[in-house]
Design a protein around this nucleic acid. Structure first.
Lengths: 135, 135
DNA sequence: CCGAATCCAAATTGATACTG
DNA sequence: CAGTATCAATTTGGATTCGG
């Protein structure tokens, strides 16, 4: 593990804070804040699933339970991050399509690792909670 | 409840198609809800770092910024999940030590994948936000 | 059809103080 | 030392409504 705390005491350049998880500027912490959002990772995965452009309304159809507000908000956030591309068709009525950027697609890899762990181990977690519930 | 209640065996269909992410019962969604918590993943990684037993107060020292309340709460949650083991020494004053269970250690793997992505790509994300900030 | 703005309810978090 | 209880502030998500 890279856990040597060789901090110089001065502000380190971005990308060099590997051992400093509790620093709010730590990239890992910021990433977790982001994908920890209720809809972010679901949207990324949905976009990865279709592997192409999706319209706003179809996205909302696929993401059952999401409100227009949260869909738009999450999408704007993802776009600002460079994870999602937004393409506006200048028609009437307007047609807007979203897709994953290469950067966004690269995020799917670690997200899949997480999904893999969840599929494998969450039943164990559930069993543990059920067993120790009354403790 | 899920209609797919077959938890005793492998239910993954052929290909990549797995559980419905938008189902609140989906394990991946539940895992993300959990590690999306502000302190959960930080604590798991801290415990993985020491690779042994840690006392409550030392944990609080390492996890700069966490309050006793949140530390205790997150720890209790992790323990109920079977990710963390709690060992009480019946002395006066009491000494309690925490450690990662094997299950908890296994979670470190996908968490590290996430960290890896963050270290590599968050600077790009930042650059993108900075570039398109004023829009 | 897309999405921004407003208002509001609910879940999280934190500061502080108290207990065994 | 290792928690727990209570209260308040902040954040988050959702319903509705209005505009392009």
């Amino acid at each position: 593990m890279v856990t040597n705390g060789d901090r110089t005491g001065k502000t380190a350049p971005p990308g060099n804070r590997r051992g400093d998880l509790f620093d709010p500027a730590c990239p890992t912490r910021r990433l977790l804040d982001r994908i920890g959002g209720k809809w972010t990772s679901m949207l990324v995965k949905t976009l990865a699933d279709v592997d192409g452009e999706v319209r706003f309304s179809e996205l909302q159809r696929r993401a059952r339970g999401i409100s227009r507000k949260m869909l738009a908000q999450t999408l704007r956030d993802l776009e600002a991050d460079g994870l999602v591309a937004r393409h506006v068709e200048p028609t009437v009525p307007p047609a807007v399509r979203y897709s994953l950027t290469p950067l966004g697609r690269s995020l799917v890899v670690p997200l899949d690792a997480l999904r893999d762990w969840a599929e494998t181990h969450m039943p164990t977690v559930d069993a543990h909670r059920a067993a120790g519930a009354g403790s």
